[in-house]
Design a protein around this nucleic acid. Sequence first.
RNA 1: GCCCGGAUGGCGGAAUCGGCAGACGCGGAGGCCUCAAAAGCCUUUACUCGAAAGGGUGUGUGGGUUCAAGUCCCACUCCGGGCACCA
Length: 822
Amino acid sequence: MARPFDVTSVEAKWQARWLDEGTYEVDNDDVRERYYVLCMYPYPSGAAHQGHVRNYTMGDLVVRYQTMLGKAVLSPIGFDSFGLPAENAAIKAGSHPRLFTEARMQELSSSLRRLGAVYDWRREVFSHDPEYMRWSQTFFLALLKAGLAYRAEAPVNWCPGCLTVLANEQVLADGTCERSGDLVIRKDLEQWFFKITDYADELLDDLNGLDWPERVKTMQRNWIGRSEGVEFDLPLADDPSRALRIFTTRPDTGFGVTYAVIAPEHPLLAHLTTDEQRDQVHELVERAKSESELERTASSEAGPGLEKRGAFTGSFVLNPFTNEKVPVYVADYVLGSYGTGAIMAVPAEDERDYAFATVYELPIVRTIQPPADFEGGAYAGDGVHINSGFLDGLDVVAGKKKATEYLEREANGVATVNYRLRDWLVSRQRFWGCPIPIVYCEKDGIVPVPLDQLPVLAPDDVAMDESGQSPLATHDEFRHTTCPRCGEPAVRETDTMDTFTDSSWYFLRFADPFTPDKAFDPAQAAKWMPVDQYIGGVEHAILHLLYARFYLKALIDLGIASGLPREPFARLFTQGMLRIDGAKMSKSKGNQIAPEKYYETVGADGLRLFHLFAGPPADDVDWSEQTEEIIEGCGRFLDRLYRLSEYAEVNFHDAADESDLQVRRAVHRAVATVTGCFDRWMYNIAVAEVMSVFNTVSKQARSEHGIQRATLDEAIDLMLTLLAPMAPHVSAELWERRHPGATSLHHQNWPVADSALTVTDTLTMIVQINGKVRARIEVDPGLSEDEAQRLALADQSVIRALGDAPIKRVIAKPPRMVNIII
RNA sequence: GCCCGGAUGGCGGAAUCGGCAGACGCGGAGGCCUCAAAAGCCUUUACUCGAAAGGGUGUGUGGGUUCAAGUCCCACUCCGGGCACCA
């Protein structure tokens, strides 16, 4: 495409200038109003792809716009540089993940600069920087000291593809690994955990105050899964001194309990199982053990498979409401890890229990009166209690309250809250991560590495293979050490930390990477925190965003981040993803469209404009054949702007007239519209508005009548200013050509529309007859109802359309419309 | 199954409050420029009847509220996403 200017050199010139002049460097003691813009910590996978382009274009727009609004804007960048892809690539290539990663970091940095995205590069951080690792490890030890990090043996999710354990959050609903797609298997291993569950309530409650997409907040609420209920005892029928403890959220349905169920892992199972039932129970337990989490949870539909999924234990417990004996079953639909691992079953009001009861022919007793038209099995809705003794006649809420009081009195009941959220498993059996700074000593047990010996760094000559063992464990020199406490021989922890620990505090380091001997000075960080605008993909809705929230709260409570707000990200924007042929555009699918070729044709500005223009920023974008042409169109628009700015084919007239006034009105309305769009993430409309006003200006300037020089200059200058955050290179270049020696465009103040020009002096009023538009009349915006009606009825085309039909009614809503009903 | 989104021309998408549906762009058609082409510029473009003037229809489907519905209410269809034995 032939362009009126050399895109590549213009863009290079401005990128160099922003970098060399430190245009977007900002100091912590800046006196202007502060604004912190952050795009999610990128994994350095090489040159930026279209997803990055889209993400960082929007981030950059916010940075430049907020700066022009006169704020001190913190715009940092860094790299989430630990992680599996680098390690796997290094295994393949026989090299070291550091070399691989650092090369990718260089590529990503330079392609972000090539896009025109601007940062305070002095604040750059990356996870494998020893100085960064030092603080990651310090925080681990602080959490340990506070009891928020602990080691425990637990059934964990092992991914055979990634050769490591995963956090619950990394396992998808179908039991596969979110990264590799392999089926996750269960292993019992001793691992390190962070006690995120201590913060469950706060993590839940604080969501209410966040300006985040409702969808993301809902996902977090579901993940935390708080449920209020009561724990109480079901005494064993044979031995009432012992009891089965259960948790329920529906104590009010207690009169409808017709059996109880315990999990296959339940410690009382052996005791409860009678000799006659032993074989059957044993078979079920063995199968539950061998089955993966997927197989165990996949057959969730009630029905045929169900009869294999439970067994009678042979024992009975007493229903504390009715004192009747009810049988105890073991079934894999009850989980050992939630609540007490045992439940009371109320088939009439719980679907799962209903399905089970139907298969095993257990009695079903309604305790809530369903609506007359209710068809189906279990009724979980509200209603009046029946068959429920002292609860009869109460609704669900009142019934729960009274039943809980009863259980507290009669059955060791305790009102309890349970969470779906589990503690965060942070151990990873991989090399390319931050080592856990722990030493195991026969005498002293678990010993933290002293702070002055941090960071614990992995040696470079570690053999990485696919054995599934932690690579560091094979390195004898690293592994064998001495106990920091007693000096006797000891061994190091050889697992590394989940890389989500790295991304859980990087935003704090960005706020103050300057204070020596501290990860950050809380007083300095407090100047910027919380992040005013966080931008990233919705795929991090649970994992990263939940962990980072937990980390900040914990660091504050540990005294490391005193005085900081307890939520890291005040406002979150999640942009849509790019799709191609219906599939997500991603490196793993190999269906990416590289941005580079567009830099040569339409430039970074043209590509940025496309990503802004393509559709609502929150929506997904489909990359199609048409996309190429739209990108070309964005480039063409910039070319037209360039030519107009250079007065190509423009006719001037001397004195301003009505046509100049109309142009000025359009331009000032555009200023108001674009500003409103920027404040509401409507970038596609902002681009359209600039294009639209450009058409108006250009048409007038190219007309025979022409335009006044001052009118055109004002219009072009304002259009360039509006484009400065969107297409920063061309706009800056044209500004400089128009105003040699003046302050550059990105240092200009954001324009304010002249309100005298945005208020129009005439409006088009529509006249409808029976709701159909029959005429348009130019009117004064302040006209009265009577005037509007009079004007409407006097209009020739209205008179013609009315004919001699009698007018029944006239609705006048000046100055917008008049509707005549005949 | 449950919970959220969404459905508007040939296409991507506009439409603060219920008040001109289709802004802006892509594509298409026609023209100017040119020896010719590319680029650029201009005009036009929801569908439909009509030579025109002018009319009719139209925002997934079916109802409803209203002077007036893309927008509000009810039912449904399809698409996308999230959750899915958490008691």
